[in-house]
């Protein structure tokens, strides 16, 4: 039996052609039905991949590979395959999936991507995190990020990486990716700046089950209820004092930067903006997905970078 998985890629507007975590929802839903046969994931309408979409894709593929005889990924054009190659996607998945892309031709043209702060990386334990942080900190230093920006990005990444492997019990560990985009930062008057996106996905038990180990949250209600609890200071699965501060601090960091923190787990998805939290229901899928947006607004007394791009580019 062959299953074709669809995506929800917008055809119009600012999000046109972008593979986000949300655009994977139809595939997450279809993936639950895959059992034994072959499966094809059609990414041909994708023009641009953002880190949360990339980490979500990695988690989806891990799930499909464990359940099917053959997993195929269809891509079109040059930019998306080239970007996926630069993000180490084919190094991690090339030998485990079938694609219509000639990866060897991409390798020859391989060059660094200016906005890539962390390629797609697979890790399994907390011991790997300091190395990941050291490396990204060095990249940020070389790109002249200020110490406080560097601290915000690194502390965010380390904290959500630690959550992923601590609560994970994930068959594939966790995937992370970090990308910076130069573009017009939305909101109010046109402000040129940059947005750093930090994304992580794991295949573990999810937030509701982790929290339910704490008797206080044993009846956590819906996945969205559990996600809202998890954002509060001091809420953790163990209930130990001092635990459960990491995610709350990440929420504060992103809100202070004018960004957001999104969590997807089970059938819940919430986005925290500091002054408000939005939530919606999504198709149930194992694991936890985190996306943090950290805008950097170029201050008016500072010369702006020459490369102004009207839209985010991979």
């Amino acid at each position: 039996m062959r299953t074709q998985l669809e995506l929800n890629i917008r055809r119009k507007g600012a999000m046109r052609g972008i593979l986000t975590l949300g655009s994977l929802d139809p595939a997450f839903m279809g993936a639950e039905k895959v059992d034994g046969g072959s499966v094809v994931l059609d990414l041909r309408t994708v023009e641009f991949v953002e880190p949360a979409g990339l980490c979500g894709l990695a988690a989806l593929l891990e799930f499909l590979i464990s359940r099917s005889r053959l997993v195929g990924v269809r891509l079109s054009g040059h930019n998306v395959p080239a970007y996926l190659e630069r993000m180490d996607f084919f190094r991690l998945f090339g030998h485990r999936i079938e694609t219509n892309v000639d990866v060897s031709s991409l390798e020859e043209r391989r060059r660094g991507s200016p906005g890539t702060l962390q390629e797609l990386i697979n890790f399994h334990s907390e011991e790997e995190i300091p190395g990941i942080i050291n490396r990204i900190s060095e990249i940020l230093t070389n790109k002249d990020y200020r110490l406080r920006e560097r601290a915000a990005i690194c502390a965010t990444l380390s904290e959500i990486c630690a959550n992923a492997v601590e609560h994970g019990r994930s068959p594939f560990g966790a995937y992370a990716a970090v990308q910076a985009y130069q573009h017009i930062v939305s909101g109010g008057r046109e402000r040129r700046g940059e947005e750093v996106l930090v994304a992580i996905a794991d295949g573990g038990v999810g937030v509701r089950e982790t929290l339910s180990r704490n008797p206080k949250y044993a009846e956590a209600g819906t996945d969205n209820d559990a996600l809202r609890h998890a954002l509060q200071m001091g809420v953790s699965g163990t209930g130990e004092i001092g635990r459960g501060g990491g995610l709350a601090v990440v929420g504060q960091i992103s809100a202070r930067a004018g960004g957001s923190l999104s969590l997807r787990s089970g059938s819940g998805r919430i986005t925290y903006y500091g002054d408000r939290t939005n939530s919606r229901n999504v198709p149930t899928f194992p694991g936890t997905f985190v996306r943090v947006s950290l805008p950097r607004i170029a201050s008016s007394d500072q010369p702006l970078s020459k490369t102004r791009k009207p839209k985010a580019e991979n």
Binding site: S137, L147, R150, A151, C154, A155, S158, E159, A162, I241, G242, R243, G245, G246, V249
Partner: peptide, 18 residues
């Protein structure tokens, strides 16, 4: 120290203070 995250701060200093 250039940066520390919450987990480090709690484990190194929070628990020490405790």
């Amino acid at each position: 120290v250039e940066l520390m995250d919450y987990s480090f701060a709690d484990e190194a200093l929070g628990i020490l203070a405790s």
